[in-house]
């Protein structure tokens, strides 16, 4: 905590306004989603009918299925790629380490539009048909830097003497990894997985470029829906996504600390 003793009241007011600005559209969506009178505010009651309608729509359910499978697969792959890299970066000092770190973080520095377009062109040009691979690759690469960041932070907190002890009593590399390293950094793993999953689950720009026909993730499905009608069913679906994201934020904050996860 830092004490700068100036303009406290003004800063507090501006922060309050800014928070209102940030929360307002989220709150509005949630209110519309449970308001029995479609769009007429203030609400005059509470209903879950819109949620029921959203959750029984075939299109949305299919979108959820796609997003779920995609999110789990991409989060898993991103962590599998990031974990060994994070271990190598934390345990060793070598020339060019900083540069290597920037390279590994590079998917964050490239505008998503360019990155998605590049992958799209790439798969078109190599003659790849309409499969799920481009979508999976796009999501995995895009979220990998986040996994790397969380895993690096949790490995920093891991005392290497635990692993040394395991190795001394005769455990192999694999055994050490599974019975010492992974259990000790499990909170980091869980929050990394949660963050990766929620970023994939909510992603729109990458999916819109790379989703093959018939495999539309939920955000793209929601987008096509609200292009033509923004009724309370859409609000309920958006509301469900918000609640899921809120859950992920709480999990990540409890386990890893939000601040460490999302540095700029």
């Amino acid at each position: 905590m830092i004490r700068f003793d100036f303009g406290t009241a003004a800063l507090r007011l501006i922060t309050l306004l800014m928070m209102t600005f940030l929360v307002f559209p989220i709150a509005v969506t949630l209110v519309v989603a449970v308001n029995p009178r479609e769009f007429i505010l203030p609400p005059n009651g509470f209903t879950l009918d819109w949620f029921r309608a959203a959750w029984s729509s075939k299109t949305f359910l299919r979108g959820m299925g796609v997003s779920l499978v995609l999110g789990i697969a991409a989060a898993f792959l991103a962590n599998v790629l990031a974990l060994p890299a994070a271990m190598a970066l934390v345990r060793n000092n070598f020339p060019g380490k900083a540069a290597l770190n920037i390279i590994l973080m590079s998917p964050l520095l490239i505008p998503t539009t360019i990155f998605s377009l590049a992958l799209y062109i790439y798969f078109v040009r190599i003659g790849y048909g309409s499969g799920l691979l481009p979508l999976l690759v796009g999501h995995t690469i895009h979220i990998m830097p986040y996994a790397l960041r969380i895993l690096t932070a949790s490995l920093h907190n891991l005392d290497p003497s635990y692993e040394e002890a395991a190795r001394i009593v005769g455990a192999g590399r694999i055994r050490t990894l599974f019975s010492i390293t992974l259990p000790v950094i499990r909170t980091g793993l869980v929050s990394s997985f949660a963050l990766c999953f929620i970023l994939s689950w909510n992603d729109f720009p990458i999916s819109v470029f790379l989703a093959p026909p018939g495999w539309t993730p939920l955000p793209v499905e929601l987008f096509s829906y609200i292009k033509f009608q923004y009724d309370a069913v859409a609000a309920a679906l958006a509301g469900s996504l918000i609640l899921l994201s809120a859950l992920a934020i709480v999990i990540i904050d409890r386990l890893a600390g939000l601040r460490r996860v999302l540095r700029s």
């Binding site: 559209p25 729109f204 992920a248």
Partner: peptide, 27 residues
């Protein structure tokens, strides 16, 4: 923690979801 969570919420909640809220506000 609350302030940070609120700041980060728009980064984690998907764009389409947020846009929906803004449509209700903007129309």
């Amino acid at each position: 923690n609350i302030l940070l969570a609120l700041i980060m919420a728009p980064l984690l909640i998907g764009l389409v979801t947020l846009v929906y809220g803004w449509i209700v506000i903007f129309r």
